[in-house]
């Protein structure tokens, strides 16, 4: 069976959920080999990758691969593609993932498709474009197809193997070292799931009214094990940190359930959440455009509805 490279997304040594989705998807195209780039590869990481069917793990371990943004990752992948001649390369649709895909495409002279939500066995990708209004099927016609795949688009299915570890050492070129990471500032993590990967997202908008108002949103999120999101009106006002913004210029999320509270549904907000599987809207204005997307909506004051919902969920747990 042909080999399919799957680039591992990892943080603090652990494999992110999107990687198990990509491995699952890769199995429909061939035999997945995971590619770990950066420091911190561990037994635990190997176990997760094996659980989802990685036959091999190429490990490029070393700080030099992450001390310069993006470019070294593309060099490792280009070297693997030329040595292994895989039938495709799958990368998560994160900012780093897309840029890595772009640079790789040029190095190996191959086409790239971004934000795929599915790939068929014969390599045809499905993209959901224009805020979800149009579904496109496209394919790469030159070179080794490179796909970036949106988190939450393939349910992960286990297929246990014991992966063989293959160490790779690709020297980072001078050019790739031209930009250097000199510091990392990590905002306080909130202990909730990653916004872009979460199965459930609970967000708040201008209707939340204040930083304190977000306590109501967080309580609901916690009762559901969800991530918290916010509209730009809420992040611009400083009520909630910018990294939680959902939308055109924030994160694109595609969870199983999206609960929007006090958000009107501007086109830029929709662009970031329109492909959510189930959408719930709480808004006191029955004319709010987001109701058009709602599977279930409540016209009412979020400060009444949301706490009652949270209580109800706790009661039924």
């Amino acid at each position: 069976m042909s080999e399919v490279l799957v680039v591992v997304e990892h943080a603090d040594g652990s494999v992110k959920k999107v990687t198990s989705e990509l491995l699952t998807l890769a199995r429909t195209l061939g035999e997945p080999s995971a590619v770990w780039i950066g420091p911190g590869y561990s037994e635990a990481a190997a176990a997760t990758l094996g659980e989802f069917g990685a036959a091999k793990v190429y490990v490029a371990d070393g700080a030099q691969y992450i001390d310069h943004p993006v470019a070294p990752r593309a060099e490792v992948l280009a070297s693997l593609v030329s040595e292994q001649a895989p039938s495709a390369v799958l990368i998560a649709s994160s900012a780093d993932g897309k840029e890595t895909a772009g640079r790789l495409a040029i190095k190996i002279n191959s086409g790239v498709i971004t934000d795929a939500i599915g790939i068929s066995a014969d390599g045809i990708a499905t993209q959901s474009v224009f805020g979800g209004s149009t579904v496109v099927h496209s394919k790469v016609t030159k070179g080794t197809p490179i796909f970036t795949v949106r988190p939450n688009s393939t349910p992960p299915v286990a297929a246990a193997t014991t992966p063989t570890r293959v160490d790779v050492s690709v020297p980072v070129s001078e050019v790739a070292m031209k930009a250097k990471v000199t510091g990392r500032t990590v905002a306080q993590k909130d202990g909730r799931p990653d916004l872009s990967e979460a199965a459930i997202v609970v967000s708040g908008g201008r209707g939340v009214g204040s930083p304190e108002g977000f306590a109501v949103i967080e309580a609901l999120a916690d009762s559901l094990g969800a991530a918290v999101g916010a509209s730009r009106a809420a992040t611009d006002a400083g009520w909630y940190p910018h990294q939680y913004q959902v939308g055109q210029t924030g994160k694109t999320v595609s969870p199983q359930l999206y609960v929007a509270n006090g958000i009107s549904g501007a086109i830029q907000h929709r662009a970031g959440m329109q492909t959510s599987k189930t959408i719930v809207v709480v808004n006191k204005d029955p004319e709010a455009p987001l109701f058009e997307l709602a599977d279930f909506g409540v016209v009412g004051d979020l400060f009444q509805v949301v706490p009652q919902l949270t209580e109800e969920i706790k009661k039924r747990a």
Partner: peptide, 11 residues
């Protein structure tokens, strides 16, 4: 979708 108006039992 189904849209309901809160009459005290929306949650």
């Amino acid at each position: 979708g189904t849209i309901v108006t809160d009459e005290g039992d929306g949650g």
